[in-house]
Amino acid sequence: MNDRLAELSGSGVAIWIDDVSRRRLSTGNLAELIKDKNVVGVTSNPTIFAKALSNADDYADQTRDLAVRGVDLEEAVRAITTYDIRWAADVLRPVYDRSNGVDGRVSLEIDPRLARETDKTIAEARALWRLVDRPNLFIKIPATAEGLPAITAALAAGISVNVTLIFALDRYRAVMDAFMTGLEQAKANGHDLSKIASVASFFVSRVDTEVDKRLDKIGTEQAKELRGKAAIANARLAFEAYEQAFGTQRWKALEAAGALPQRPLWASTSTKDPNLPDTIYVTELVTQGVVNTMPEATLVAFADHGEVHGDTVRGTYDEARKVIADLEALGISYDDVVNVLEDEGVEKFAASWKELLESVSKELKGAK
């Protein structure tokens, strides 16, 4: 195993890879990452699947069969994506078993076009849960206002959930409330809480992308000093909110009933600004009990030259609050930033889903 990644894991950070594809599975690459790079989980999203499907040869046999059967486009996409996710879940099953269900998880996102439709999100979550039929699956549900009741309903039905596209601290608090409400309902419904898991995916680098763009327009020395600081500050304050929520009597009652905590997951951890270190969103967010899901380039970079400087989250909250306050003083509205990022996130994933549909449609037509 890689020493740097082993040290990161030993510091309490679960290393997941933010990518899945038929090629990665068929070549045994995912199994190698588990063995050699401390990877203990997989996340996917519409953009990742759109990229995977660009290698059409990897999916040719399945696409041909779907075309011969006359399967419609939406169902064909479900068949293709759930096949990959089921395969990845099987590869990770030993990790799931030895971690007692904490890790070894694979995430599959609901059609992002449903992000503002609660009932359809719930129905799709149930359908995907049945289709994949693996206990180490996470259904990804966006943390939109409309997604919150869907998160609760899915958990109440015994479905493990990865809550995605979280940017705002207030929304994150609402996500944790939806999680606990879901577990309370699951318990009332007779589900074994120890079998239900969840992570909350807090997006990191995109915050800097949006904030730094605004800082550059201001252009003062003070603005320049704040570049590259907002995302880490926001994530650290999210962990403070996590500590507060999971220190309550409400949580302790659920924990006593067998529930697992909803771990914070740092998503969007690749560095977009070439002036920043390529491992900054890993090194600066190390603490016990979190997940960091990395694109392969970030994983490789950390394995090569990443450093662990102990816990870089706990005890930083006052400094993080000052960063947000300084941004507000310059006229950069936190609320506006996170609202823009949520809307953009939904739109980008919907665009990727459209691209995925177009790719599969083209292959289905070509296979006839």
Rank of each mutant, 00 (worst) to 15 (best):
A253Q: 09
A253G: 12
E255F: 13
E255N: 13
A256D: 15
A256G: 15
A257S: 13
G258N: 11
G258F: 08
A259M: 04
L260N: 14
L260Q: 14
L260Y: 06
P261D: 09
P261L: 13
Q262E: 02
Q262W: 06
P264H: 00
P264G: 01
P264R: 01
P264I: 05
L265I: 00
L265T: 07
W266P: 01
W266S: 01
W266R: 00
W266Q: 00
A267K: 02
A267C: 09
A267E: 02
A267D: 02
S268V: 03
S268T: 06
T269I: 05
T269A: 03
T269E: 01
T269L: 09
T271H: 05
T271F: 06
K272A: 10
K272L: 11
D273R: 02
D273K: 05
D273G: 03
P274Q: 10
P274N: 12
P274F: 15
N275C: 06
L276S: 08
L276I: 11
L276Y: 11
P277N: 06
D278K: 10
T279L: 08
I280T: 07
I280R: 14
I280L: 10
Y281V: 02
Y281W: 14
Y281R: 05
V282M: 10
V282P: 11
V282D: 07
T283D: 03
T283G: 03
L285I: 02
L285Y: 02
V286H: 10
V286A: 11
V286C: 14
V286F: 11
V286W: 06
V286K: 07
T287M: 13
T287C: 15
Q288N: 12
Q288P: 00
G289E: 04
G289C: 09
V290P: 13
V290I: 15
V291A: 13
V291T: 09
N292S: 12
N292K: 04
T293K: 01
T293S: 07
T293N: 06
M294A: 11
P295W: 00
E296M: 05
E296I: 01
E296F: 04
E296W: 08
A297V: 14
A297C: 07
T298N: 07
T298R: 07
L299D: 04
L299H: 05
A301H: 15
A301E: 15
F302P: 04
F302L: 08
F302N: 08
A303S: 07
A303M: 01
A303H: 06
A303K: 05
D304S: 14
D304G: 10
D304I: 03
G306Q: 00
G306I: 00
E307D: 11
E307C: 00
E307Q: 14
E307A: 13
V308F: 05
V308L: 10
V308C: 10
H309V: 05
H309Y: 05
H309Q: 12
G310C: 04
G310H: 01
G310P: 00
D311Q: 02
D311A: 02
D311N: 11
T312H: 00
T312A: 03
T312R: 02
T312F: 01
V313H: 04
V313K: 06
R314H: 09
R314L: 04
R314D: 09
G315I: 14
G315C: 11
G315W: 03
T316R: 10
T316I: 00
T316Y: 12
T316M: 10
T316H: 08
Y317V: 04
Y317T: 03
Y317N: 09
E319T: 12
